[in-house]
Design a protein around this nucleic acid. Structure first.
Lengths: 330, 330
DNA sequence: TTGAAAGCGCTAACAA
DNA sequence: TTGTTAGCGCTTTCAA
């Protein structure tokens, strides 16, 4: 059916081993043979079968990327960083969604390990990571991205969430705000915890009392942001400044404010974690914390490649990338 | 190193063939043996090696997905549809970016065919598709998504772009607009051509003269939308209504208007192709054309699966999904 | 219902 | 510098 090394070997009048050596640029092959073989490869239209190669070499040059969701601007910016970096090194990426479920995440890990991927980059669905341990046995390196998990020690590329939200809240305080509402994500997710922590610390450092009633938790989705902003705004005395823990909640909150701008909310100002393309043109938004999304991915890929090549220096390596305060708005 | 069928066979006191049969749920295996083997699989923690299986069966249960860009909300919604649908059938997806280059697209096709993917779903980088033909020889089915190419006949899942933009422009006309500016994408991309066609047809059907000076072409990016809106607004007599051909240009155009709302542009109204999560809260936006993004992906996956199982009925199948006019705004 | 044996396409000792 | 040979882990005839 399809052309194999044998066919090429026969055509070139050499052995299959020689063909294989030519394909793999083995230095100890004569120029003459190399040319002859390459010509035959061209003529026959030979394509290497990487499945066979992988079976032999025990390497697939493929890695798995598991994110809680695929149609998500943040996760896919990370994915972009991963793919760009890995492709440079000849690796491909199988992308899977865990649908924000640790159970499904576990299934994907299972699946990918059976596909013999050389490594895994995971944005964990929750803070629990016991199920990652099976990978230790199969000897597949894992690098976590964006979020950390408990009960599993491995490399990770994260963002300095605490400092990020601290800086944003500090900025609000320095602009004269005293009452700052908080809209946060699911506390099972490490970033949500850390961003909340940054908020508390900033208030505490500036001796502003914590007002529990204007602190709301939900999840990192548009709908949740919408509902929590609604709750805040329906108070008799709503806060005029709100810190929101991620982009999607920010969108939801803005949606609520847009819908009700003629009634309750005309002068609310939002500070938000994340700075996506359109964050700057969302109404009500003043301050944003930019994450280096693509870099999260590329750095995770770099560490993974290092582990794949059996370099386990500095293990486990936990990288904390810096965020950036953006105050420009329109 | 890792546990193989042989190890399981030895432990269970059967042959490797029997273990394989148990794994594959071969009906003609006794319950007793099946249980015995499954127990051993459990105990030894046996994991199938899909590389070996693929070499034997000539199927990888993996497909390739090539999009012009990864960090792109539209493409990744399509990808989500693809992944969801394929996973149900036990397939995985290798995601590649062509970086909007046909040359790179060709490289990815090459790479994926060497990885022995069972099929390919491609959102083409441009309207040219000659380089897809190599896949015919290797016998890998391809389904195009969102965009069509010339010089290559295959299945495709598209959207009714002409009718989509026609409907939007018609809506503007019926609301009393006579001068409607146009901001369009790269005419090498089929969707850009079709959306322009819809615009022209609507004007023509309603006997509105085409005003070439308020028709602008760029590419589907934020920056381009920004610049083209700038060009339009800097005319002495700018159009008050503008139809924009995609979401990203819409964002860019809105950015320009936001930045200049105090000077030139206060009463511009935008109609736009695409309806993303945040389209509704972008200022200036009245009408939107919603595409069934996820469905594009899932339908493409369905057709691909059909072709993979050698069902070539109705080939080539060109599916045109309907768009939806959204007028609600805040 | 099960086993023996061959082979998928490649690479890598080892030998020459 | 090249060829011979074995084998990666699985499936699948064929035979029992």
């Amino acid at each position: 059916m399809s052309i194999t090394v044998k066919d090429v070997a026969k055509a070139a009048g050499v052995s299959a081993a020689t063909v294989s050596r030519v394909i793999n640029n083995d230095p100890r092959i004569s120029e003459k043979t190399a040319k002859k073989v390459n010509d035959c490869i061209q003529e026959l239209g030979y394509k290497i079968n990487n499945v066979a190669r992988s079976l032999k070499t025990n390497k697939t040059r493929t890695i798995g990327f598991i994110a809680p969701e695929i149609a998500n601007d943040f996760f896919m910016n990370v994915a972009k960083g991963v793919e760009d970096e890995l492709r440079k090194h000849g690796y491909s990426v199988i992308v899977c969604s865990s649908n924000e479920s640790s159970t499904e995440e576990n299934n994907r890990i299972q699946l990918l390990s059976e596909k013999c991927v050389d490594g895994l980059i995971i944005i964990p669905a929750s803070g629990e990571g016991k199920h990652f341990n099976q990978l230790k046995e199969v000897n597949i390196p894992v690098v976590l991205a964006d979020r950390l998990v408990a009960n599993f020690e491995t490399d990770a590329v994260l963002v300095d969430n605490i400092n990020g939200s601290y800086t944003a809240v500090e900025h609000l305080i320095n602009s004269g705000c005293r009452r700052i509402g908080f809209i946060g994500g699911d506390m099972n997710v490490t970033t949500a915890r850390e961003r909340y922590e940054g908020y508390r610390r900033a208030l505490s450092d500036y001796c502003i009392p914590i007002e529990e009633s204007i602190i709301k938790f939900g999840n990192y989705h548009v709908q949740s942001g919408y509902e929590l902003m609604k709750e805040l705004m329906e108070y008799p005395d709503p806060p005029q400044n709100v810190f929101i823990s991620n982009y999607f909640m920010h969108v939801g909150a803005t949606k609520f404010l847009m819908e009700h701008r003629d009634t309750i909310a005309s002068n609310v100002s939002i500070a938000s974690f994340d700075d996506m393309e359109i964050s700057s043109i969302l109404g009500f938004c003043s301050v944003r914390i930019r994450q280096p999304m693509i870099e999260i991915g590329s750095k995770a890929a770099q560490i993974l490649l290092k582990r794949i090549s059996h370099d386990y220096s500095n293990f486990p390596q936990i990288l904390r990338l810096k965020t950036e305060l953006i105050t420009k708005d329109y």
